[in-house]
Simulated scan of single mutants.
Amino acid sequence: MTETLEKYFVPEPSKYPIFGSIALLLFGGGAVMWLNDVGAGPWVLALGLAVLIYMLFGWFGQVVHESESGRYGKRVDTSFRWSMGWFIFSEVMFFAAFFGALFYARVLSVPALSSGDNEALLWQGFTSAWPTAGPNAADSFTPMGAWGIPALNTLILLTSGATITWAHYGLLKDKRGQFKLGLLLTILLGAIFLGFQIYEYLHAYGDLNLRLDSGIYGSTFYLLTGFHGLHVTIGAIMLTVMLGRALAGHFTAEHHFAFEATAWYWHFVDVVWLMLFIVVYWL
């Protein structure tokens, strides 16, 4: 007896990859032109961003239409799950590189530079104390403390992890109101987090003299927290799209991987922030 295998859906050739290539070319070229004070640079960058947004809306919209029309089976669903898993793994390695840079500077290079005759190569009075303020007293800064806004933002993100899980349980139990409310609360908490982070940056620059060029501490601080803020922004946009689809009646208890993938991403953002809070702010 021959077992009938489920057919794997293969979409028709798409125009959107070429639009993505054009968008990245314009975006990158415009950024380079802008950095080199070429007058058309900002406009080329803006055009690239506009083309990229067009591609995202068109391509994702096509995928949503295919999903809602019932063309995706279990094999396609498995492919989506593997793809999202590998994407999150790539994000893990992305942040691992930055955490590695912080570890190398704080634990290895700064202590090594303060030993032996290395002081003569740097400046008088250099020590391995973290964070190092640099050779000029005028460039001294106050490190960002853990308690206050960072601790509050930690509570906010942990709460947002609970609200998105609550929303997921609502969808699984076919409680659409709970599902939508949980999504909305998660989006609002993400927006509050970003608002506090903007205030934190203003406070760091204006009151603590902590800038991007404040030595290796300033570089790693803004690199890690800034990229995390970017990921929170992307996650909030993804959640907003999920809320729009929920309001349109999309997703069922059996078929909702787009929402599930967004929840994975949001939990990943939560875990990264916990590591940031401990390593960058607290220790």
Score class of each variant (00 low, 15 high):
residue 266 W to Q: 03
residue 198 I to L: 14
residue 147 W to T: 09
residue 273 W to T: 04
residue 100 G to K: 13
residue 257 F to L: 09
residue 28 G to S: 10
residue 228 H to A: 08
residue 113 L to F: 10
residue 203 H to A: 14
residue 129 A to Y: 11
residue 142 T to A: 10
residue 243 L to C: 02
residue 148 G to P: 06
residue 208 L to F: 05
residue 206 G to P: 03
residue 6 E to M: 15
residue 42 P to F: 14
residue 195 G to F: 13
residue 127 T to K: 09
residue 75 R to Q: 14
residue 274 L to V: 15
residue 269 V to N: 00
residue 37 D to M: 11
residue 78 T to H: 13
residue 51 V to L: 09
residue 264 W to A: 04
residue 65 H to N: 06
residue 23 A to L: 04
residue 85 G to Q: 03
residue 155 L to N: 08
residue 132 T to Q: 14
residue 238 M to P: 03
residue 56 L to H: 12
residue 212 L to N: 05
residue 68 E to A: 05
residue 49 L to V: 13
residue 218 G to K: 04
residue 160 S to Q: 04
residue 121 L to R: 12
residue 278 I to F: 15
residue 26 L to C: 14
residue 177 G to Y: 03
residue 29 G to V: 06
residue 55 M to T: 08
residue 152 L to T: 08
residue 42 P to M: 13
residue 202 L to A: 14
residue 192 I to C: 09
residue 250 H to A: 14
residue 173 K to S: 04
residue 51 V to G: 01
residue 224 L to N: 02
residue 82 W to R: 11
residue 190 G to V: 03
residue 92 V to L: 15
residue 253 A to G: 07
residue 208 L to H: 11
residue 100 G to P: 05
residue 39 G to Y: 11
residue 240 T to Y: 00
residue 33 M to H: 07
residue 14 S to F: 11
residue 267 H to E: 04
residue 229 G to M: 07
residue 268 F to Q: 01
residue 104 Y to K: 11
residue 201 Y to I: 13
residue 255 H to P: 01
residue 236 A to Y: 02
residue 135 P to E: 03
residue 2 T to V: 12
residue 219 S to A: 15
residue 108 L to E: 11
residue 249 G to K: 00
residue 102 L to T: 07
residue 269 V to M: 00
residue 123 W to D: 05
residue 250 H to T: 02
residue 143 P to Y: 11
residue 58 G to Q: 04
residue 218 G to I: 07
residue 218 G to F: 03
residue 257 F to I: 10
residue 185 L to S: 04
residue 126 F to G: 05
residue 29 G to M: 08
residue 4 T to G: 06
residue 70 G to C: 12
residue 246 A to F: 00
residue 45 L to C: 08
residue 92 V to Y: 13
residue 258 A to R: 01
residue 135 P to K: 15
residue 280 V to K: 02
residue 3 E to Q: 10
residue 256 H to I: 01
residue 57 F to A: 13
residue 36 N to A: 11
residue 104 Y to R: 10
residue 176 R to V: 00
residue 147 W to D: 09
residue 92 V to A: 11
residue 65 H to K: 12
residue 173 K to Q: 02
residue 119 E to W: 10
residue 227 F to R: 00
residue 33 M to V: 02
residue 98 F to G: 09
residue 39 G to T: 12
residue 195 G to Q: 04
residue 168 H to I: 00
residue 263 A to T: 03
residue 101 A to K: 08
residue 181 L to D: 00
residue 277 F to P: 01
residue 145 G to M: 09
residue 12 E to K: 15
residue 200 E to H: 06
residue 246 A to S: 01
residue 124 Q to I: 09
residue 94 F to I: 05
residue 91 E to P: 03
residue 184 L to M: 06
residue 74 K to P: 06
residue 91 E to K: 07
residue 89 F to P: 02
